[in-house]
Design a protein around this nucleic acid. Structure first.
Length: 854
RNA sequence: GCGGCUGUGGCGGAAUGGUAGACGCGGCGGAUUCAAAAUCCGCUUCUGGUGACAGAGUGGGGGUUCAAGUCCCUUCAGCCGUACCA
């Protein structure tokens, strides 16, 4: 009997698949297509267990769909621009491009060792001009269509490094590398008009029925649509500078007669104007700015304000005067940076009013309350109700009140109905070297001028110096200086590059047609898109997925294709976790550094005790990582893949354990041994004459086909693995002397092999060949179950008395209700409870249960 | 604060409102072995009982139903997202 030699088998079949071109995708209008995509990796250097999980899940889906007769597209590539490459350049003096290319080579080899069914011919890296030139064209098209524009915006500036920092690079207000306090600077930057699509992006969420609810909700909240009104409050007091009114946004115009003050943000233009002449106001504004930067403090911050002394008139009754406060809880970034305060129906406004002695006037009466007895003291009433104390609107419900209010302020010329979004336009400028150059030239005479298409691509210069501070592009004289395409005068190139989310916003389109000189062809996109199943981490639930949805719409608008939603199905997988270990000094230990000794852990090298801690997401900092390469070398890719699928449902976090891998390995070895036992020369797979345990086995095999197929289609891979175990167990239980035992066994083992093939493909191929086949499972269609053979002849069902299980009996399938009832009542266990009396009621649920009520 | 998700044996987890704990891990016992590993067989929710069996049991409390892990109300805990969003 030959030993199961995973490394040898795996290499052999990877090569065979490759030679046969099994996974090459070609457009075939006669076959239904299926596009499976896993989020492509950043080439950080080595794959980690998160990748293994992600790509195993995708590969099972891809292999299963291919066997089911779909024309499958399953590609892989590299999200290759990004900051770590620049850091490597600075730390080790290696060029970001070289570093990236080396990492890709290493990770490609690792991915290939997993036996993933990719069409490698479609591979690309986003850092090559061959890829990024297309997004330069797209950007120019966006510019022409008014979907891209330039405006000033705040950035985090590191004064030591002379560079812009991403929010994540600012730690406690200081640069993560330099430690210098970060400055806020205003820079002119490029934006994409994602807000143009806000309504559509929001409405279309409802149609994404194969997306997790969680992700749909997060996108919904992120877009953050609020319906309301913009209302103008005119200053009664003298204008401040040229400001004579305050515009306010509200979602509750129905509460307008409950207004008792107006509050503006500390960085509102009016606040600045007041601060210019009022020392106390200036001090308060400075206070607010200080508070704003310290993050956690905001959470518990008290409602604080400063009375400017200014007074505005109520827009619907100028005789009502309201004071104007600067308030720390009003944000300039949202709405208009100003609010009207209605303390009775907003908790913040109420807290503020109570702190500053402002009136509280209820105008919305909750259902069932009496107008004379209803007061608000500490808790605002924020729900709907009936308006009162509101003149003409008295008696209207909240919704009608909102409409009436909008009509009234419109008629009075004091405002309009308005919808605001939390979603901001997407700032795509990054002051970085390792990204796609933005194809614009800045001319002192003509302003920003798009690079003419004939001059594209604008490629990154290779000879850059990372030792100097700042963006290497800004320091590269011969690249930076150019001539204006319009006037021919001296000009400078745009030195910013695109946000790396730019690349990942259309890579799924490039895969459809990776050699196209137009990014992708509309025909290829029309055939392959949308992605039928997208799989990746939930950390991309908002940004990447939202940008991609936007980008697809924007590209459609400028004529690249005709599509709105790029991803029809989405699955977000959970994290791979592992127990953490610390030594006696609290230092983190790798799992490979410790040994289990009874229920205690020791440091293998020193014999000192180790402390086992929480099970957490695998992370380098806590060292609770297991290197996939070592697992694959030790156990094989098939085992690693099988364990990834075995225990936890894919959307949930899973714990990587040594014993779990051992279990998966043990199972594969067992299947291997069972296959060796089959006498290929004599055992037929004709199961027609099987009887007894052999017949049972045939039935279990057919059932396994039905159940496992459904499990894969529903992403219940842990159950799919359980089906394999049950079939294997049944094979072990067949009695050798029962009629047809050998045939049943062979049929069951062949079935098991085929069902195993999407999960652990190499061993399945090897066994398939061993069983005398000269076909490859990668080319085989999925087994079909015979529904008659999959059905049980008889079923054991439970008998309850008053809902409590008292006995079980075996009945033929679909047994007549009368027979079932009689058989149940004949049970001695039931008789004991009946005590000679007739039952009150007998409920017979066919093939399920019988409940006797006494 | 708000929104969402999750609570089931020692552990990961199964259960179209219909026999709770499939399958695996771990554990216990046995076979095999000079011995160990590997492998095979049996047991393994808890309590009582040699046993047949009885009682309890899906975070807690209540409800609907012949029947609830599953549906409804309420409450607690953990995790995730998000935030003075007007």
């Amino acid at each position: 009997m030959s030993q199961y030699n995973a490394p040898q088998i795996e290499k052999k079949w990877q090569q065979k698949w490759d030679e046969a071109g099994c996974f090459t995708a070609r457009i075939d209008p006669d076959k239904p297509k299926y596009y499976v995509l896993e989020m492509f990796p950043y080439p950080s250097g080595r794959i980690h267990m998160g990748h293994v999980r992600n790509y195993t899940l995708g590969d099972v889906v891809a292999r299963y769909r291919r066997a089911k007769g779909f024309n499958v597209l399953h590609p892989m590539g590299w999200d290759a621009f990004g900051l770590p490459a620049e850091n490597a350049a600075m730390e080790r003096g290696i060029h970001p491009g070289k570093w990236t290319v080396e990492n890709i080579a290493a990770m490609r080899a690792q991915l290939k060792s997993m036996g993933l069914s990719y069409d490698w011919a479609r591979e690309f890296a986003t850092c090559t001009p061959d890829y990024y030139q297309h997004e330069q064209k797209m950007f120019l098209a966006f510019l022409k269509a008014g979907l891209a524009y330039r405006k000033e915006s705040w950035v985090n500036w590191d004064p030591v490094e002379n560079t812009v920092l991403a929010n994540e690079q600012v730690v406690d207000g200081c640069g993560w590398r330099s430690g210098a306090p970060v400055e806020r600077r205003r820079l002119a930057q490029w934006f994409l008009k994602i807000t143009d699509f806000a309504d559509d992006l929001l409405a279309a969420i409802d149609r994404l029925d194969r997306w997790p609810d969680r992700v749909r909700l997060m996108q919904h909240n992120w877009i953050g649509k609020s319906d309301g009104a913009r209302v103008r409050f005119t200053l009664e007091t003298a204008p401040v500078g040229d400001i004579d009114a305050i515009e306010v946004f509200t979602t509750r115009p129905d509460t307008l007669f409950g207004a008792s003050f107006v509050a503006i943000a500390a960085n509102h233009p009016l606040a600045a104007a007041v601060g210019a002449t009022n020392k106390d106001a200036a001090a308060f504004i400075a206070d607010c700015a200080k508070l704003g930067t310290s993050e956690a403090a905001v959470e518990t911050a008290e409602k604080k304000g400063f009375d400017t002394g200014l007074v505005v008139a109520h827009p619907l009754d100028p005789s009502l005067k309201l004071p104007v406060h600067i308030a720390n809880f009003v944000l300039m970034e949202y709405g208009t940076g100003a609010i009207f305060g209605c303390p009775a129906h907003d908790q913040r406004d109420l807290d503020f009013a109570n702190a500053y002695g402002l009136p509280v006037r209820p105008v919305v009466l909750p259902d069932g309350e009496d107008a004379s007895g209803f007061t608000v003291t500490d808790t605002a009433y924020t729900g709907p109700g009936t308006l009162f104390n509101s003149r003409d609107w008295d008696g209207l419900d909240s919704d009608a009140g909102k409409q009436a209010a909008i009509a009234a302020i419109s008629a009075a010329g004091a405002g309009t109905g308005e919808t605001t979004y939390r979603l901001r336009d997407w700032g795509v400028s990054r002051q970085r070297y390792w990204g796609c150059p933005i194809p614009v030239i800045h001319c002192p005479a003509c302003g920003p001028v798009p690079v003419p298409e004939s001059d594209l691509p604008v490629t990154l210069p290779d000879d850059v110096d990372f030792s100097a501070s700042g963006n290497p592009l800004a320091n590269h004289a011969s690249w930076k200086h150019t001539t204006c395409p319009t006037c021919g005068g001296a000009a400078e190139r745009e030195q910013d590059t695109f946000d790396t989310f730019f690349e990942s916003s259309w890579y799924f389109l490039r895969f459809a047609d990776p050699s196209s000189d137009n990014g992708f062809s509309a025909d290829a996109a029309a055939y392959w898109l949308p992605v039928d199943q997208y799989i990746g981490g939930v950390e991309h639930a908002v940004l990447h997925l939202l940008y991609s949805r936007f980008f697809t719409r924007a590209l459609s608008k400028v004529g690249y294709l005709d599509l709105d939603e790029p991803f029809a199905g989405l699955m977000t997988q959970g994290m791979v976790c592992h127990q953490t270990f610390q030594d006696d000094k609290g230092g983190w230990l790798f799992p490979s550094d410790v040994t289990k000794d009874g229920d205690k852990w020791t440091v293998t090298a020193t014999g000192k005790p180790a402390k086992a801690g929480r099970i957490e997401k695998m992370s380098k900092s806590k060292r609770n990582v297991v290197d996939p390469e070592i697992i694959i070398e030790t156990y094989g890719a098939d085992t690693a893949r099988l364990f990834m699928l075995s225990d936890s449902p894919p959307e949930r976090d899973m714990e990587w354990t040594e014993s779990g891998v051992e279990g998966a390995s043990r199972f594969l070895k067992r299947v291997w041994r069972m296959a060796q036992d089959v006498d290929v020369a004599t055992a037929s797979r004709d199961t027609a004459a099987c009887a007894g345990s052999a017949h049972d086995l045939v039935r279990i095999a057919h059932k396994a086909i039905v159940n496992l197929s459904a499990d894969i289609e529903n992403f219940r891979f842990n159950r799919a693995v359980a089906q394999l175990h049950m079939l294997a167990n049944a094979i072990g239980e067949v009695k050798p002397h029962d009629t047809g035992a050998a045939a049943a066994k062979r049929f069951a083992i062949e079935t098991l092999t085929r069902l195993l093939s999407p999960l652990s493909p190499h061993i399945a191929e090897e066994i398939w060949a061993l069983l005398g086949h000269d076909t490859m499972l990668a080319d085989m269609e999925w087994p079909v179950a015979d529904p008659d053979l999959a059905r049980d002849d008889e079923i054991e069902i439970g008998i309850q008395v008053n809902g409590k299980l008292r006995d079980t009996i075996t009945l033929p399938l679909d047994c007549a209700e009368e027979d079932a009832r009689n058989k149940a009542l004949a049970s001695p266990a039931v008789g004991r409870y009946l005590d000679g009396n007739a039952p009150k009621k007998v409920i017979v649920v066919k093939n399920r249960i019988i409940n006797v009520v006494v």
